[in-house]
């Protein structure tokens, strides 16, 4: 009679220990899964941010101006577009 509670206690302790170990293992697996994902995502994200930051206004402004001029020619004709471009420069110079 005396040994049964001890046996149960022992099994309970063992089960709890096993449970804790499994939990920890599970947690470690989940952590590692998340860490892998984070690494992949972070590295690719850094690469992309580099690209974004080089698309600064300074670099693309000449391109955009050229494009705007192209569209202007289409809209009002070459001579008018040139006149407008000249007037713009004049105005900027004051």
């Amino acid at each position: 009679m005396q040994s049964e509670p001890n046996e149960l206690e022992r099994r309970l302790e063992e089960a709890e220990r096993e449970n804790a170990a499994l939990r920890a293992e599970n947690a470690a697996l989940l952590d590692s899964q998340l860490a892998s994902w984070t690494t992949i995502v972070r590295d690719e994200s850094s690469a992309l941010t580099q690209v974004y930051s080089t698309l600064s206004w300074r670099i693309t402004k000449p391109l955009r101006d050229a494009r705007a001029f192209q569209l202007a020619v289409r809209r009002v004709g070459l001579s008018s577009a040139l006149a407008i471009a000249v007037a713009r420069v004049r105005r900027r110079r004051g």
Partner: peptide, 19 residues
């Protein structure tokens, strides 16, 4: 579920400026 969701969101995350 977790892995499937992470896979689905990977593209959104890799284009995130707020990581």
């Amino acid at each position: 579920a977790t892995l499937l969701l992470l896979s689905e969101l990977a593209d959104l995350a890799r284009h995130s400026e707020n990581l």
